[in-house]
Design a protein around this nucleic acid. Structure first.
Lengths: 337, 337
DNA sequence: TCGCTGGAGGAAAGGGCTTTCTTCGGCTGG
DNA sequence: CCAGCCGAAGAAAGCCCTTTCCTCCAGCGA
């Protein structure tokens, strides 16, 4: 790989001059030399070594993003927002998939620190795991002390700024909608138990139940994995144990789609026999049949806000922005039969 | 940010010794010193500067990936395969979105070279653009000459290894299926004209037509953007200009879903009034109503193969792997009314 | 004509790390 | 008892680049 020295030698100038030409430095360079340098760059296909540049300049240009899995549409949407703002700031994104493994997440924080990223954005639910939370916070605080910026999406209790989607509020909206329609026996397809997103949404659902003088018993809640197939399986479990359910609330749209598949398979009509409500308002939600009533969260917006916090002016104290949840009524919900 | 020198000072050893302990060098270090170093690392939250390491070691650890847009499900699926293999090889992926802008793609190749990546994987359709192709190939070849590896997915004519999905073959399968069912007036919702993926799939479709003694006239082909909304709009255009169509072939599933939406809106039943066939077999294809007949490509597999080529043993000559397309029959297709 | 000034180019000092090459101390064998 | 060795630790070079600080020379005014 050609180095700056190679370019300088070929152009018959010093490395300093070559560097100045290549980086468009303020210092003037005679046109004659400039031309020779540019020609050498071209001929050698020279590209400056970004690592050496970083070492010499000591300005951090990349930002790190840790998500559960970019190929999951939920995170893909958020990532789109993150990337947009990062690109606007001229930053390169390094994306790491933790696959919901806390240890991998910790390892990635170190890796990103090692990469000298200007900021780390943590995306996706926190865990109900004391040890992990403590370790993570220690790492993040150490990182912040060296000038690193931290922002998180959908996590309480951690170092740095955060953007919080209305998970509890959305759960409430979904629950209230079903109870308002007159449903009395509601099943819930929840996400993994260890995720705070799951518990937050569930809490909202329960608050709605309480308000309508009802409860959602533990047997009416089945924990799944936030993906389509586990949602389908959970719906089957739910229907087997409580055949008289008139509505199922899934804590995300992917699982809601799985629920719809199970219902179709069993010849149950939606919302005639049973209502289904989702969560997240993924783009596909309007294209399934029936179109899914769901809770809109604005994932790209979450990403944009978080990245804006991470790359904007640092604040004295950690900031928290909340993004409200809104209900999107489509046709997968209706009154009980 | 703590440096190796800080750690060494705190531990009362030389930087050389500290480095050896931290990297688990083969050279033996007394337990006493080792302990002091490790303690210092811990106390200072020391993480080695990856850029300085890279500079000193000169071994490339990251790999670069250029995709059109990770948040597009098609690329998300491919990326999953790429990441999987990269992670297995202990490599970090740097993902760049070109948003189908050839100039941005060229810029990213330079950026990735600057990052000293071990390999560059280009994902997604090539362009019918001589200037671009020439420039890109020059860059890639220069990169390969310095020991860089290149692999591409779904592109002909370029430097490096490649994995080719059966685009032409898939187009043929889709067309043959429709003609075999007895359709005579078929509309096509195509992707952007400049993409080779579009023309390849279209070529396959036309080959099928020819084989059944028919042609697909230019007025029966509407070019859209490979996304849901443009697919919906294209279907509307098609139906307005040729109201007697009995089938629509969309060149990807996202557009097929848009087509279904338009048909639903117009009160046309699928496949009763009109058949719809997609392409890609995205996960969601089985969950729309009616479930989409489509061409299966195996996107994660494409990604895995490409990354395996890029990270495996280099070959003397460029290798090309082909992945066959297969037809997945669901219920969005049937005989014409 | 000489002393200055200012401008253009180069030398060299980092920046943080790895690794080769040295050094030094303690041990073994003659 | 001393030469010679070996093993462990440290000194220093080098990776590639940026940038400060110098140097040198031309041109200007006195």
């Amino acid at each position: 790989m050609a180095t700056l020295a190679d370019v300088a030698r070929r152009a018959g100038v010093s490395a300093a001059t070559a560097s100045r030409v290549i980086n468009g430095s303020a210092k003037p360079v005679a046109d004659e030399l400039r031309g020779r340098v540019l020609r050498a760059v071209d001929e050698l296909h020279y590209v400056p070594n970004a690592h050496a540049q970083l070492l010499a300049r000591a300005d951090r240009v990349a930002v790190g993003v840790i998500v559960h899995d970019v190929s999951d549409p939920y995170f893909a949407e958020i990532t789109r927002g993150l990337q947009k703002v990062a690109t606007e700031h001229g930053r390169l994104c390094i994306i790491c998939n933790s696959y919901r493994d806390p240890d991998r997440e910790l390892a990635y924080v170190d890796l990103l620190r090692a990469q000298q990223v200007a900021a780390i954005v943590l995306t996706g639910s926190g865990y109900h795991d004391q040890r992990f939370t403590r370790l993570l916070n220690a790492k993040l605080r150490a990182y912040e002390q060296t000038g690193g910026r931290v922002a998180a999406i959908g996590r309480h209790m951690h170092a740095g700024d955060s953007v919080l989607p209305g998970n509890e509020e959305g759960g409430y909206l979904a629950g209230a909608e079903l109870f308002r329609l007159g449903h009395k026996r509601i099943g819930v397809v929840a996400g993994p138990k260890v995720l705070t997103t799951t518990t937050d949404r569930l809490t909202g659902l329960r608050r709605a139940a309480k308000e309508f003088g009802r409860t959602i018993g533990p047997r009416r809640v089945v924990y799944a994995d936030f993906d389509r197939d586990s949602g389908a399986a959970a719906a089957a479990t739910l229907l087997d144990s409580s055949p008289t359910l008139t509505a199922i609330a899934a804590l995300n749209d992917a699982m809601a789609i799985g629920v719809l598949a199970t219902l179709r398979e069993r010849g149950l009509s939606v919302p005639g026999d049973i209502s289904v409500i989702g969560f997240d308002d993924m783009p596909i939600a309007r294209d399934v049949v029936p179109p899914l009533t769901t809770v809109h969260l604005g994932m790209p917006e979450l990403g944009m806000r978080a990245m804006a916090l991470a790359l904007g002016k640092p604040a004295r104290a950690p900031r928290t922005e909340r993004l409200p949840a809104t209900l999107v009524r489509r046709t997968s919900t209706g009154p009980p039969p």
